[in-house]
Design a protein around this nucleic acid. Structure first.
Lengths: 342, 342
DNA sequence: CTGTTAGCGCATTCAC
DNA sequence: GTGAATGCGCTAACAG
């Protein structure tokens, strides 16, 4: 039996018409309510299967308040957020929930408070709750269950998943120190971003602990994006006494830093060591492969969704602040320092 | 001025109340209609900015039929679809469109026809059109503009973006032949998947062209997923006369194949060469790094969204079948064959 | 057991 | 400048 020709979008009344019953009956079958004969039910089921009908997310959430949909709100689909999405997908498997990942990609990206606007756009009508990926503001109370991943302004009162940025940054810096580097540049995020602040603090702590004086010239703001990291990376390498190693506060900046160095005729890691932060898959695609500090990004997504589902279902989650460990991943972009005159 | 305490989700009437005007006036301001004094308009704008209000996607799409939202419908968030998402995000930048990426992750994944049900769930009420990522069926006509990426059953009448699977598979096989391999295993997808069929055809063509006889024992079905690829990979390696190289039809299967080989005490690439297909970022994270055939996945996402926007806006897209080139990416998982007695 | 009917929520857009 | 009807597809309450 071939499917009827569908020109419009499929609605419950298409199913009803095709099965020769009323819309209400179809609804009952779908929601497994009593009061439908087995025969009618199976006929309706057959039509549903034949047409590939599924109820409209929107219309359904108009009536029933439980929607079984969670939102993952991201400023952009870039390596960090898409990694997170993989973990989120894993978390909903078998849970009966669906994922709507939403982004206006850039339209709002630059602006502080994109997460509030996104939430305003989706919550109440479409999703039961949301994971906010690296939101800019978390002090506000929203009318919806929300979990923040790696919020830019720190934890505040909102349920949060992050990783140990301070420890990770110390690991990175200590690794470079261990290779004999003393002039180590730091390409940070922005100081209004909590993770960036902690990474800088880790950098400073490690230097101080090693008795290396901190040179403010070696600390620049890279802004986490390749485009915004390029200029400060150039500035670092143009110093009279340039660094022999650079710790960039995320992988995308680190990768761009390597490219800048190579443009300037420097070899990585022979002439310049570079270390990143995040361990997005792209870090292994870079040439040379990037040594970096790994955050368990997928796991962060997994945990955030688990917490959110607890919240949505009215259970209090085990913890409201989950912090996952970071670790050093050694690849090819760091080498022992060469003495100036070698 | 601090924001009012918001407990419920934000609606247009919250804005109206806060600004001391009617709901209708706020709507006019938002949609830049005439009939609002400049002073009122700017007061309303200020309140909107202060509250971080944005209109509800759902409510808005009830009235206006242009929603400026496109759906990316995926069976699961895995490396291929998330790569695609990056390209899709790039395509909407500055276009005024937003992206809703949707997946029920596994609930429907196994079933043929998930794309029709997903579409039924979102189209009409939420999105203007959709990119279907590796859909299983494309012969049906949907009531919504749709572009298929790498459809499992070939192109049919639907606008499609794919890559040159046949050529790519020949590249992979020729690479192994060039390294001296003659017993080359093939770990395919399923034969109902067009891409898998083409990759097998490329494999066969290359062997025939090189005068190597095709051994049916060396051809197995891996199903594209790590779990489903494991058993057939084991079988290949357990043959009396096992292959010296395996071409797996996608990277995830190839990576699992390397793990199986390592479990069995084989070294890759010394004892077994493995080549994949896709070039997802994970292929560079594998140990050893996977040699593979690259599809320009991000570019595929970019093109698909461009085509879709043309369709949604009623322009006929330049082409309805875009096929992008594949290329060999040499890394570390392939080596010249060793003679049996060496 | 099945059909009829009245909303659900929110933004838009008439008519005033 | 505002009040009130309207759009959508579905569900729930009730009638037959």
């Amino acid at each position: 039996m071939s499917a009827v020709e569908i020109q419009r979008r499929l609605t419950i009344s298409d199913v009803a018409r095709q099965a020769g019953v009323s819309v209400a009956t179809v609804s009952k079958v779908i929601n497994e309510r009593y009061g439908v004969s087995a025969e009618t039910a199976s006929r309706v089921q057959a039509v549903i299967a034949e047409l590939g009908y599924e109820s409209s997310l929107v219309a359904r959430s108009l009536r029933s308040h439980q929607k079984n949909v969670i939102g993952i709100l991201v400023a952009d689909f870039e390596p960090f957020s898409t990694e997170l999405l993989k973990g989120a997908a894993h978390a909903i498997r078998g849970s009966g929930y669906e994922i709507v990942a939403y982004s206006a990609s850039g339209a709002a990206e630059e602006l502080v408070g994109w997460e509030r606007r996104y939430l305003s756009r989706l919550s109440g009508t479409l999703i039961d709750g949301a994971v906010l990926v690296t939101p800019t503001v978390v002090d506000a109370r929203y009318g919806t269950p929300v979990v923040a991943v790696d919020p830019h302004t720190g934890r505040s009162g909102m349920p949060t998943v992050d990783s140990d940025n301070l420890k990770g940054a110390m690991l990175a810096t200590e690794h470079l120190l261990g290779l004999g580097h003393r002039r180590i540049g730091f390409l940070g995020g922005r100081l209004d971003l909590e993770s960036a602040r902690l990474r800088e603090e880790g950098y400073r702590n490690a230097l101080v602990a090693a008795g290396v004086e901190i040179d403010p010239q070696l600390i620049r703001v890279g802004g986490y994006r390749p485009e915004s990291a390029e200029q400060p990376a150039r500035e670092l390498l143009a110093l009279d006494d340039p660094p022999t190693a650079i710790f960039a506060a995320n992988d995308l900046s680190a990768i761009r830093t390597m490219q800048v160095a190579q443009d300037l005729g420097l070899r990585v890691p022979e002439d310049l060591s570079v270390i990143g932060f995040d361990n997005v898959p792209e870090s292994a695609l870079a040439v040379p492969q990037l040594t970096t500090v790994a955050q368990p990004i997928q796991e962060m997504g997994y945990q955030a969704v688990r917490m959110l589902i607890d919240l949505v279902e009215g259970r209090s989650p085990g913890q409201t602040h989950v912090s996952l460990p970071t670790e050093l991943v050694e690849r090819q972009s760091c080498a022992p320092v060469r003495t100036r005159e070698s």
